[in-house]
Simulated assay, not measured.
Amino acid sequence: MAFDLSDRSIYGFATAEHLRFADLDANGHINNGAFLQLLENARVSYMREIVRSGLPRFRVVVGRLEVDFKRQMFYPGTATACARLIEAHERKCIVGHGLFDEQGNCTAVLKAVMVSLNEQTHRSTPFEPTVRTVLEQLAASPQGMPT
């Protein structure tokens, strides 16, 4: 299923984020690096929510980030950072993100490839079948949230 990551309605999970003066760049708008931090907050919180839904513990690490910056954001203000699973595979899953300003405009979208990690070897490993099944169900669900 293809998702339009700039569509706020596809996300069942969101975090409210405060834009900080420290996030400004030399041009007076929120730095691109701050966008990534805001989206990371949503991704980590979302993944914790999935584990808390009753899944066995699993580890993932970022394998790749692909971001499109769509509009500027300015201090002071708030933003909404969203995350949801959009794909699940044997050893990786892909989390889609959207970042929205106070007016609801999409300011950035991001795809994060999250690689399944064995805690002892620190190598990629297949997801446990139970985990993969749930990840696939979340990726196919309307808003990517556990029921």
Score class of each variant (00 low, 15 high):
residue 34 A to V: 09
residue 119 E to A: 15
residue 76 P to K: 07
residue 62 V to N: 00
residue 75 Y to A: 05
residue 43 R to S: 10
residue 32 N to I: 10
residue 36 L to S: 05
residue 52 R to W: 05
residue 84 R to T: 11
residue 115 V to C: 08
residue 105 N to K: 11
residue 89 H to C: 06
residue 33 G to N: 12
residue 60 V to T: 14
residue 59 R to Q: 12
residue 31 N to K: 07
residue 70 K to W: 00
residue 70 K to G: 09
residue 81 A to W: 10
residue 49 E to Q: 10
residue 66 E to H: 12
residue 78 T to D: 15
residue 77 G to A: 06
residue 93 C to A: 13
residue 43 R to G: 05
residue 72 Q to T: 08
residue 105 N to P: 03
residue 100 F to N: 07
residue 30 I to C: 14
residue 69 F to K: 07
residue 85 L to M: 09
residue 94 I to V: 15
residue 87 E to K: 04
residue 51 V to R: 13
residue 108 A to Y: 05
residue 59 R to F: 03
residue 75 Y to R: 04
residue 53 S to V: 04
residue 68 D to G: 08
residue 85 L to P: 00
residue 93 C to S: 06
residue 72 Q to N: 08
residue 72 Q to Y: 01
residue 83 A to W: 01
residue 103 Q to H: 02
residue 63 G to M: 08
residue 44 V to W: 04
residue 73 M to S: 07
residue 64 R to L: 07
residue 73 M to Y: 00
residue 56 P to S: 12
residue 97 H to I: 00
residue 59 R to N: 12
residue 115 V to S: 08
residue 106 C to L: 07
residue 97 H to G: 05
residue 40 E to A: 14
residue 74 F to C: 03
residue 89 H to S: 13
residue 90 E to L: 06
residue 122 H to N: 12
residue 101 D to P: 02
residue 85 L to E: 01
residue 55 L to Y: 11
residue 75 Y to E: 04
residue 113 V to S: 14
residue 104 G to N: 10
residue 92 K to Y: 15
residue 54 G to W: 02
residue 74 F to R: 09
residue 75 Y to P: 01
residue 43 R to A: 10
residue 71 R to G: 01
residue 46 Y to K: 03
residue 78 T to P: 09
residue 115 V to R: 11
residue 55 L to Q: 10
residue 84 R to F: 00
residue 64 R to E: 14
residue 44 V to L: 15
